[in-house]
């Protein structure tokens, strides 16, 4: 039998030690909803796992702080989705959680693990005979000339067009979340925007964590803009499906109804959680209207490079952004 090791460290510090001791084939096991799934498919073939799902020091979260929300990486998505402060002060975050997966999966999946959720590209998950640069670097990309209806239109490369599938990271990105990490080299903090990589020539490298480094907590700056936020998700059925397009948006309106602050992040459309700064700027100082919202959407999708079957995602993305802005604007005005 392929050797397979399991460690259940008693503390975060022990987990970091175990990861270092385990070497390159060792992976972190949290809720299991991505890693364990991909192990069953044979796409992930770790030689050992370090299980952190039981570590109490990771699972707490505090949304009562004046300056920032502090969310343990091991907090369960279902618990976060129910948090009354999140629902009131930053509905986009709560909605992104509530619309993710199913309640059963949200009871297992963790706040930190969810950020590292891997693509749903059928050629990546399907295994042989499909070439996949993400799964087997250098083998090619079956999606580029294949069934790419669900694939990305932003941030793609010759090597990979796989969409980042998650919702939670998209919403966090809109609110400038930061990540506390711990690894063999000690602790450090990075902005969430620096976590995910675009595929480029190395789509197998999806994030910037160092070997043996763990996400410990997520910190989200508290902003009044959060109240005027919304997470909009368009999918192939009304629930329990990955996004074809999603938008986490937030606006703060001034006295005359002009936009003072604006956040737009996209999901389902890009190879990584995608912040649309340019689109945000088009709204600053403007009134939020049907027209300005569409313009923001158009700006957000301006760089889109659709493939064979996903051309509709450009129009869909534009309208998803505009739709989400409509909801956010309503909330901001009330």
């Amino acid at each position: 039998m392929r050797p397979f090791g399991y460690a259940a460290p008693a503390s975060l510090a022990e987990a970091v030690e175990a990861l270092a001791a385990g070497g390159p084939g060792t992976r972190v096991l949290a809720g299991g909803t991505t890693l364990y799934d991909l192990m069953k498919l044979g796409v992930e073939r770790p030689t050992a796992v370090v299980d952190i799902h039981h570590l109490a020091e990771l699972s707490g979260f505090d949304t009562t702080g004046r300056d920032e929300l502090v969310l343990g990486a091991g907090a369960r998505l279902a618990d976060l989705a129910e948090d009354p402060v999140l629902r009131r002060d930053c509905p986009a975050l709560a909605e992104s959680l509530a619309k993710a997966a199913s309640q059963q999966l949200r009871n297992s999946a963790t706040a930190g693990g969810s950020l590292l959720q891997r693509t749903r590209c059928g050629y990546f998950r399907g295994g042989p005979p499909y070439p996949c640069n993400k799964r087997r670097p250098g083998s090619g990309c079956a999606a580029r000339d294949g069934t790419d209806r669900g694939h990305a239109v932003l941030g793609t490369s010759e090597s990979c067009v796989a969409a980042y599938p998650g919702d939670w990271a998209v919403a966090l990105l809109a609110f400038d979340a930061r990540l506390d990490l711990l690894g063999p080299g000690g602790p450090r903090t990075i902005p969430l925007s620096a976590l995910h990589r675009e595929p480029g020539d190395t789509p197998q490298h999806e994030h910037t964590l160092a070997d043996g480094e763990l996400i410990v907590r997520i910190r989200v700056p508290v902003t009044a803009t959060g109240r005027g936020s919304a997470f909009h998700k368009i999918r192939d059925r009304e629930s329990f499906a990955f996004a074809l397009a999603s938008a986490a948006v937030a606006v703060r309106l001034g006295r005359r109804g002009t936009v003072q602050d604006c956040r737009i992040a996209l999901g389902g459309l890009a190879t990584r959680p995608w912040r649309a700064h340019e689109a945000e700027r088009t709204l600053l100082g403007e009134e939020l209207t049907e027209r300005s919202a569409l313009l923001a959407g158009e700006t957000a999708l301006a760089g889109a490079r659709p493939g064979t079957h996903n051309g509709f995602k450009v129009a869909l993305g534009i309208r998803t952004v505009a739709d989400a802005l409509r909801t956010a604007g309503r909330r901001a005005a009330s």
Partner: peptide, 28 residues
């Protein structure tokens, strides 16, 4: 919702699971 997507290059169907072969859920 439902459509199996044949794979003209490799044969078989690409969306060979219950996430990608989309059957209705209660909310539908």
């Amino acid at each position: 919702r439902e459509g199996s997507e044949p794979d003209p290059r490799y044969g078989g169907f690409v969306n060979a699971d219950l996430a990608d072969y989309v059957v209705p859920v209660g909310s539908d």
